[in-house]
Amino acid sequence: MTLFGLVRHGQTDYNLRGLFQGSSDIPLNDTGREQAHHALEPLPAIPWDTVVSSPLQRAEQTARIIAEDHDIPWGGTDVRLREIDWGAAEGRPVDEMERLYPDRSFPGREDHQQVADRGYDALEDLEQRFPGKNVLVVAHGTLIRFLLSGIAERPLDSIPNGTLSVITLEGTTWGVEMIAGVAEERIVQVRSHDQNPRFILDKPALIPGAAPRPL
């Protein structure tokens, strides 16, 4: 069984200003760097064997801070772990764009299930690279929420910056043990590696400290 820790990157100025961020390559701000230093606290210590990340700089910066702080070997980046492309909403205020598109069907937006599928595919490949290991993955709020909701088989709230979730993969069985620092117990089995769990589309409420909606 391979265990994955999913960390959402620290805060950026786009997060702070309530702008859709998605595929835009925005760096961490000072708060985000501080969140990265504390992302694994005060949770039970897990001996991480490697840390990988999305190639977007806010995720890679978070991952490298964690790797240095905790002496975790660097495992590189995977483009499939990047955040959803919000299309025409990129860089625009969330409130404004949701008034225009209440269902978030922005022109040019990436398909939701395709986002989840590339995330699952990346994790399956990491399982092959690091069988039986503990792999820390630093990525993005919407991608992580889509992955978790498919395994938990329920709608999920927004994922706060700098929080850790834990899932497992053994063969074709996915499990979730923790969501944004809160214990969870759920497994789902798919028929083959060609099939991924189906995420549940929702309009999430807030977890305390989260952005108004995943950006």
Rank of each mutant, 00 (worst) to 15 (best):
M1Y: 11
T2R: 03
T2E: 04
T2H: 01
L3R: 14
F4K: 03
L6N: 00
Q11G: 06
D13E: 14
L16W: 13
G22F: 03
D25C: 13
I26C: 08
D30Q: 15
D30E: 15
T31P: 02
T31I: 15
E34C: 08
E41M: 13
E41C: 09
L43P: 05
P44E: 10
A45C: 13
W48K: 06
D49E: 11
S53R: 04
S54M: 05
R58I: 07
A63R: 02
R64L: 12
I65P: 00
I66H: 01
E68Y: 09
D69R: 14
D71F: 12
D71Q: 15
G76Q: 08
D78V: 07
V79R: 10
E83S: 07
W86F: 15
A89C: 08
G91T: 05
P93C: 10
V94P: 06
R104M: 09
F106K: 02
F106T: 00
G108K: 09
G108N: 06
E110L: 04
Q114K: 13
V115T: 15
D117A: 11
D121W: 06
L123H: 03
P131H: 09
G132N: 06
V135E: 00
L136S: 00
V138T: 07
G141T: 03
L143T: 05
R145G: 03
L147W: 02
L147T: 06
L148V: 03
G150W: 00
G150M: 04
I151M: 07
P155W: 04
L156E: 02
V166Y: 04
T172V: 14
E177N: 13
E177M: 11
I179S: 00
G181D: 01
I187D: 11
Q189F: 08
R191C: 10
S192G: 10
S192H: 12
D194K: 13
P197S: 04
F199W: 11
I200S: 02
L201K: 12
D202S: 15
A205R: 15
I207C: 10
I207D: 05
P208L: 10
A210F: 05
A211L: 14
P212V: 10
R213N: 10
